[in-house]
């Protein structure tokens, strides 16, 4: 369990990193916190020729708060979020998600950008940031572009990054003070990867009612308008109880064939909603 040989670069600015990522003659991989890539290197599941360490890039630790959102650099750690070293525009929603990621040792090093770029279907950020309506800010040779988290994640460990592109930051929208948020995770033991996650954001002021079911065998199942799942009231009204049958059908339609698997995902969604309504 020792990595295959690789070269290592630690560029001092984003342009330098992008230049290295553009090399087509070799396999290049970015490393930030290394909490997923480290084990993959040791297991030789990843055998890049070159590792580009982006933890030296000050831009990626940058945080910019505005009236409607906050932009957090890709190298902001889970612990930065957990401890609210980064201003929280979600009234405690995302710090609580951060607190539930793996173990503190992982959170100290693991980064929000790394988690999204790795796109493990069980990752907490993939589901929760999709539900909160965050965008991924992407930097590449052609400049900057952005994608909603739900569009950025295209499959299991697959994201919409082109050759030479990297995650630069995440834009997290400010949610209303009256918004209801619920996040629920089912996992075998503390710190393990989730077997089912669900997140619900009900923010009538901004006319948002979004639900996400994560830890599926593929991309998260996103309900941009979750009203119909919860009795069909308009987004400004109080939702009814979850229509479990509908949720089950949606999961089946998304390709989740196993009945018990669907069951725990539906339970996670119902409990996330329970938490949201209790909050």
């Amino acid at each position: 369990m020792k990595p295959a040989r690789f070269e290592y670069e630690r560029p001092s600015d984003i342009a330098g990193a992008i230049a290295l990522l553009q090399r087509e003659d070799i396999a290049v991989k970015i490393i930030a916190g290394g909490q997923s890539l480290g084990p993959m290197l040791n297991l030789r599941l990843a055998q890049p020729d070159l590792l580009v360490d982006i933890t030296g890039l000050a831009e990626l630790k940058h945080v910019e708060e505005s009236s409607d959102c906050i932009i957090v650099g890709a190298c902001i750690t889970h612990a930065d979020m957990e401890d609210a070293r980064v201003p929280d525009v979600t009234h405690g929603a995302l710090p609580a998600v951060a607190r539930s990621i793996a173990y503190r040792a992982v959170r100290n090093r693991g980064t929000i950008g790394g988690s999204l770029a790795h796109a493990d279907p069980s990752a907490d950020w993939v589901a929760s940031l999709a539900a909160i309506g965050a965008d991924v800010l992407i930097r590449g040779p052609a400049g900057q572009r952005s994608l909603a988290v739900a569009d950025f994640v295209t499959g299991v460990f697959e994201v919409a990054l082109e050759q030479g592109e990297m995650v630069e930051a995440v834009r997290i929208p400010r949610i209303s003070r009256s918004a209801r948020w619920g996040y629920y995770k089912i996992c075998r033991k503390t710190g393990e990867l989730a077997q089912a996650v669900a997140a619900v954001l009900h923010d009538p002021e901004q006319a948002v009612f979004r639900a996400v079911i994560g830890a599926t065998e593929s991309t998260p199942v996103v309900f941009t308008d979750a009203s119909s799942l919860f009795g069909g009231n308009s987004v400004t009204e109080r939702p009814h109880a979850l229509d479990a049958g509908l949720a089950d059908q949606a999961l089946a339609a998304a390709g989740m064939t196993d009945k018990l698997d669907r069951q725990i995902h539906v339970v996670a969604l119902r409990r996330a909603m329970d938490k949201a309504m209790r909050a």
């Binding site: 297991l43 033991k189 503390t190 710190g191 393990e192 990867l193």
Partner: peptide
């Protein structure tokens, strides 16, 4: 199971 992500061990919280 080839890692502790697949082979689960109880930890202090379990």
């Amino acid at each position: 199971a080839s890692t502790f992500a697949d082979y689960l061990l109880p930890g202090p919280t379990e």
